[in-house]
Structures are given as structure tokens and as C-alpha cells.
Deep mutational scan, measured.
Amino acid sequence: ETKSLTLVLHRDSGSLGFNIIGGRPSVDNHDGSSSEGIFVSKIVDSGPAAKEGGLQIHDRIIEVNGRDLSRATHDQAVEAFKTAKEPIVVQVLRR
């Protein structure tokens, strides 16, 4: 079962304390579909994302501050987090 969660993150020394993997390839599949998503791959101990109620590894990131990342490329997702103003509201899907 997958549930949708909304989390609020604040940077600590400029970092949110997690890494992402995935992202849509720069070239779409011929039918326009994509199974890619942006997923949390690593969480830094005691970083902002590790706090209670924070992110978990394998969370799929859907949205950052209202910006849809469900079909974003990896670079677009990285840029969305880099430029996001605080508080950073992150919507994820968690299995």
C-alpha cells in the first residue's frame, strides 16, 4: 500500500541531508510514458531529512514547494531542491 505524505524540511548549513536517485531520462519513451521517479537513496544521520517525521529511503518525491517532480529529470529535481525557499514542503509517496 502506498500513502502520500507531506513533509516540511529546513536546511542545516545549506544542506537538506539526503541524496536522490532516478529521474526521467532526458529522452522520453516513444509513447510518452515513463516509469522513472525521483527516490530518496541516502539520508545523512542527524541531518534535516533524518529528523522525526522526515524522509525515508525509497520515498518517491512527487512535489517540492508545489513544483511537480513526478516526471522530472534528475537534474530538474536537483535544481528544484537547490532553489527551493524555506520552509521546503515535500510531498512523497511511501510504500
Rank of each mutant, 00 (worst) to 15 (best):
E1I: 15
T2P: 05
T2R: 09
S4T: 14
L5R: 04
T6S: 08
L7R: 04
V8G: 03
L9H: 03
H10W: 09
D12L: 09
S13V: 06
S13E: 12
S13R: 13
G14S: 07
G14Q: 06
G14N: 13
S15A: 09
S15R: 12
S15N: 10
S15H: 08
G17S: 04
G17N: 11
F18S: 01
N19V: 05
N19I: 04
N19P: 00
I20Y: 05
I20R: 01
I20V: 06
I21T: 11
G22R: 11
G23I: 11
R24F: 12
P25S: 13
P25M: 11
P25W: 05
P25H: 09
P25F: 06
S26R: 09
S26N: 13
V27Q: 14
V27W: 10
V27S: 12
D28S: 12
N29S: 05
N29Y: 12
H30M: 10
H30W: 11
G32E: 13
S33I: 13
S33R: 12
S33Q: 10
S33G: 10
S34N: 15
S34L: 10
S34W: 11
S35E: 14
S35K: 11
G37M: 03
G37D: 03
G37I: 01
I38Y: 01
I38W: 03
F39L: 06
F39Y: 14
F39N: 02
F39Q: 04
S41W: 04
S41Q: 06
S41H: 07
S41A: 08
K42G: 10
K42Q: 15
K42N: 15
K42S: 15
I43Q: 01
I43N: 02
V44F: 15
D45L: 07
D45N: 12
D45R: 09
D45H: 08
S46G: 14
S46C: 08
S46L: 07
G47T: 09
G47Q: 06
G47H: 14
A49Q: 10
A50V: 06
A50M: 08
K51R: 11
K51N: 11
E52Y: 11
E52W: 08
E52P: 12
E52T: 11
E52N: 12
G53N: 09
G54I: 06
G54Y: 07
G54C: 09
G54E: 06
L55F: 04
H58T: 05
H58S: 09
H58A: 13
D59I: 00
R60L: 03
R60I: 02
I61D: 02
I62T: 06
E63T: 15
N65E: 02
N65P: 01
G66P: 02
G66W: 01
R67V: 14
R67S: 08
D68Y: 02
L69N: 00
S70E: 06
S70V: 07
T73G: 05
D75T: 11
D75M: 09
F81I: 04
A84W: 02
A84C: 06
K85Q: 12
E86Q: 05
P87W: 02
I88G: 00
I88A: 03
I88N: 00
V89S: 08
Q91T: 15
Q91Y: 02
Q91C: 05
Q91I: 04
V92G: 01
V92R: 00
V92T: 02
V92D: 00
V92F: 02
L93A: 08
L93C: 08
L93E: 12
L93W: 08
R94V: 01
R94T: 00
R94D: 01
R94F: 01
R95Q: 15
